[in-house]
Computed example of a mutant assay.
Amino acid sequence: MTEQPMTEQPTTEQRTPMQRALPGLLIAGSLGGVGIVMVTLLSLAPPVDDGSGPLAAPAAAHETPTMVPTKVPMENAGAFVLPATVGPGGKDVPLTPARLEAPPPLAAAPVVPAIPKARKKSTAKVRPTRIKIPKIKVNASIRSVTLDKQGKLGTPPLSKAGLTGWYRHSPLPGELGPSIINGHVSTRRGPAVFDRLRELAKGDQIYVYRSDGKVTRFTVSGIEQAGKNTFPTKRVYGNTTNSQIRLITCGGVYNKTTHHYTDNIIVYATLSKKKG
């Protein structure tokens, strides 16, 4: 039998342009299919509730109407869901903000009745004079501060890094309502009075001394770090049914151009003892 010669496969040089391009087209087609699948999956994913409320309204009439975001279980939402309460803080615990609608944290120690408001007929107006926080070694004088022309809460002069400021239109520490005291975290010369404020945690003690000889002790109930653009105004300044205090300083990232921090550290505490 005459042996038939085998058909030779064309070499790379002998293949047509279409034959040489075929493997690449197959790969591209496969990747394109994966891309279509990924886009489809993402379009089906429910919106994540970050605690900020309803989604923004569409820019045009033909777009999808405003929708209330689907609440995702905590175990599935990760860092995108803000907690419903202010955290207790503590060693090596990252500080995060609570949802804007969250209330102030519950008292960590038995609450004592507020000190009756000082009589207006008194010739010398009572004011806080000193604050002591044993855990972070704070022992600082207090001066009064008010709002600036832009409506922002004033702070002590940067030249006095060890000074704190009491918002004089807030309740006197020990009286009914939230009393506001702030202080710098740092200056260009180094750490300031509230440099270690973020180390406080639930159960720590804060002492505020007053010009009328009374001494008030507050017990920390919670601490958070919130962005200045999403400051929890209602939680900090809103009315309370007992005597509370808020300590505020800066935190987050420092912007060397604007000379400001991105966030605020906020400590919440409730009156737990008074004397004098």
Rank of each mutant, 00 (worst) to 15 (best):
E3M: 14
Q4Y: 10
P5F: 13
P5D: 08
P5Y: 09
M6P: 14
T7R: 14
Q9R: 11
T11D: 08
R15S: 03
P17S: 11
M18A: 11
G24T: 08
G24H: 10
L25T: 11
I27P: 01
A28S: 14
L31I: 14
L31V: 13
G32S: 12
G33S: 03
L42C: 11
A45R: 09
P47S: 11
V48L: 07
D49C: 03
G51T: 07
G51I: 01
L55Y: 00
H62E: 03
H62D: 03
E63N: 04
T64N: 06
P65T: 03
T66Q: 12
T66N: 01
M67D: 09
P69R: 00
T70R: 04
E75W: 14
N76V: 00
G78D: 06
A79H: 01
A84E: 15
A84W: 05
G87P: 06
G89D: 15
G89Y: 13
V93P: 00
L95I: 09
T96D: 08
P97F: 00
A102I: 10
A102F: 08
L106M: 11
A109F: 13
V111E: 14
V111Y: 02
V112Q: 05
K120F: 07
S122Q: 11
T123Y: 08
K132S: 00
K135I: 04
K135V: 03
I136D: 01
K137F: 01
V138H: 03
A140W: 09
I142P: 10
I142N: 10
T146C: 01
L147V: 05
K149H: 15
G151H: 11
L153D: 09
G154F: 02
L158G: 11
L158R: 09
G162K: 13
R168N: 14
H169F: 12
H169I: 07
S170M: 13
P171M: 08
P171F: 02
L172A: 08
L176N: 12
P178A: 15
S179K: 00
R188L: 13
P191Y: 05
V193C: 06
F194S: 05
D195L: 00
D195C: 06
L197D: 09
E199D: 13
L200S: 09
K202M: 14
K202I: 04
G203E: 10
D204S: 06
Q205A: 05
Y207N: 03
V208R: 02
R210I: 09
R210W: 08
S211P: 06
G213Q: 09
K214T: 14
T216H: 05
T216G: 09
F218K: 03
T219H: 01
A226G: 11
G227Y: 03
K228R: 15
N229F: 07
F231K: 05
F231H: 11
K234T: 14
G238N: 09
G238W: 04
N239T: 01
T240K: 10
N242Y: 12
N242D: 15
Q244E: 15
I245L: 15
I245N: 04
I245S: 03
R246W: 07
G252R: 08
V253P: 02
N255K: 11
K256R: 12
T257G: 02
Y261E: 04
I265C: 08
I265K: 06
V267M: 15
A269S: 13
A269V: 13
T270I: 10
T270M: 04
K274W: 00
K274H: 02
G276N: 07
